[in-house]
C-alpha cells in the first residue's frame, strides 16, 4: 500500500536532497494518523472520521480564495495558499466538499509548518496506510493528488536558488 505514496514522489526530489532520510517529525505524525485509523472500523467509519476532521479545518483566509490559488483537475473546488515563514512552509487550504476537506486536514497535519526540504523528502505514506491509496491515484479526480503535488511544487519553489 505504501508503494503508491513512494511512486508518487519519484522524480520530484531535487538532486541535493536525494540521500536525505524522511523528516522524523513528519514520519511521526504519519505514524500517529495511521494508528488512529487502525482504531476505526470499516470504510464508512473512516469516511465519517475524515468528514469530521474537515469540519475542524481552520478557516481559510478569504483574500486567498482566488482563481490563481484554485487547483484544477478536481471535481471539488480546492484552494491552496502557502507562504514561507521563518524557513517553514505555512500551508492553508480549503474545499467545498466534505471528504476533500477532511483529506486537506490530514495533509495539513502532516506537512504544514515544516521546512520545504523536509516536505520534499517525506512522501505521503499515511495515505496508503489509512486505506485511501486510491485517493492518491492521479486519475482520481478528487483533488488529493493535485493538492499534494501543489504543496510539493510550492516547497520546490521555496528552495529554488534566486
Amino acid at each position: 500500500m505504501q508503494i503508491e505514496g513512494q511512486d508518487f514522489i519519484a522524480g520530484f526530489v531535487p538532486e541535493a536532497l536525494r540521500d536525505r532520510e524522511p523528516a522524523p517529525a513528519i514520519v511521526e505524525t504519519q505514524e500517529r494518523i495511521a494508528a488512529e485509523f487502525e482504531f476505526l472500523g470499516d470504510w464508512a467509519e473512516r469516511y465519517k472520521y475524515i468528514v469530521d476532521l474537515g469540519r475542524k479545518l481552520p478557516p481559510f483566509p478569504e483574500e486567498h480564495r482566488t482563481e490563481a490559488n484554485r487547483l484544477h483537475g478536481c471535481q471539488s473546488q480546492v484552494w491552496l495558499h502557502t507562504r514561507m515563514h521563518d524557513g517553514r512552509l505555512q500551508i492553508r487550504a480549503t474545499s467545498d466538499a466534505a471528504i476533500v476537506s477532511g483529506l486537506i486536514a490530514l495533509v495539513l497535519r502532516v506537512y504544514d509548518d515544516h521546512a520545504p526540504e523536509a516536505i520534499l523528502v517525506s512522501p505521503p505514506e499515511f495515505i496508503g496506510r489509512i486505506g485511501l491509496a486510491s485517493h492518491l491515484s492521479p486519475t482520481r479526480s478528487n483533488g488529493l493528488h493535485a493538492m499534494i503535488q501543489a504543496i510539493r511544487n510550492h516547497a520546490l519553489e521555496a528552495i529554488a536558488p534566486g
Partner: peptide, 21 residues
C-alpha cells in the same frame, strides 16, 4: 448540503456507479 463528489465516493463504496461533476 451534500457535495456531488462526496456523494459519488460514498455511492461507489456501495457498488453504485454514478457520474458526478
Amino acid at each position: 448540503d451534500m457535495h456531488p463528489g462526496d456523494m459519488g465516493t460514498i455511492l461507489d463504496h456501495q457498488g453504485v456507479a454514478v457520474r458526478t461533476g
